[in-house]
């Protein structure tokens, strides 16, 4: 069945009903469709027959739906065809206004703005009524979370600072590589005492890889000494 002409009509009916293609209500569309056919039946036999065929197809889909199929294959096909047609319509509509927008862009490009002025003393000063201050004081006094607990909660949200020096970790890794030639990444991280040391080890490996001193094996689990030179002597 050639869906193209009749489907454009359905799209129009859908847009009148302000509903999305996916929410298509066949009974609503069929009602509108039949109403349109009643009015237009005498205009052109060719058009009427084409649209009558479409209406019968819709009836067929509706019947299958009523007989228990949740979403008949024909309905999915109809919906995807409708969406494709609608997308094409939108694209053509957009294409038609592009020259106007291109001119507007050219015009708007002449409007040059400046950055906000810098105010060194930008501290805000607040004024509060006495009642506000009392309410705030009461809210603090009667809150259920203690200040210590609150502080702990706040601190928990922040990452710990890196305390372990990365240079030191680079030195340790290069010394290890000089001894063994290669080392498993898992071992490298497993031996780290705390989180900051693990972070330092990770960054150190990245640095060494970036400088070409070490290389990552094809298996992705081992690093080996490539060109440690004298600069990576562990000092």
């Amino acid at each position: 069945m050639d869906f193209r002409g009749p489907l454009a009509l359905i799209l129009q009916l859908l847009s009148r009903s302000k509903i999305a293609v996916r929410d298509i209500s066949l009974s609503l569309i069929i009602d509108q469709y039949l109403e349109w056919l009643d009015r237009e039946a005498e205009r052109s036999l060719d058009i009427t027959s084409e649209f009558a065929a479409m209406a019968s197809h819709l009836m067929f889909i509706k019947s299958k739906t009523l007989l228990g199929e949740e979403r008949p294959e024909e309905l999915e096909e109809l919906i995807s065809t409708l969406e494709r047609i609608r997308a094409t319509d939108v694209y053509l509509q957009i294409k038609s206004v592009l020259p106007i927008l291109a001119d507007a862009y050219f015009e708007g490009a002449g409007l040059i703005t400046k950055l906000p002025e810098y105010f060194p003393d930008s501290a805000r000063r607040y004024e509060h009524a006495a009642d506000d201050l009392i309410s705030a004081y009461e809210a603090i006094m009667f809150r259920t979370v203690s200040p210590d607990e609150l502080l702990t909660n706040v601190k928990r949200g922040y990452p710990h600072p890196i305390l372990f020096p990365i240079d030191e970790k680079i030195g340790q890794i290069t010394a290890l590589l000089r001894r063994n030639g290669s080392v498993l990444l898992r071992e490298l991280f497993f031996e780290c005492g705390e989180r900051s040391e693990r972070v330092a080890a990770f960054i150190a490996v990245l640095e060494l890889c970036a400088s070409g001193a070490v290389s990552l094996d094809d298996d992705g689990f081992t690093i080996y000494a490539a060109d440690l030179g004298e600069t990576f002597d562990g000092d």
């Binding site: 129009q12 509509q93 957009i94 206004v97 927008l101 862009y105 015009e107 708007g108 490009a109 409007l111």
Partner: peptide
């Protein structure tokens, strides 16, 4: 950038589907 005061000033799309 497009010298518009609001989105309502966008040139209207053809109201009818092609």
């Amino acid at each position: 950038t497009f010298a518009l005061e609001s989105l309502s000033e966008l040139p209207p799309l053809a109201g009818s589907p092609v």
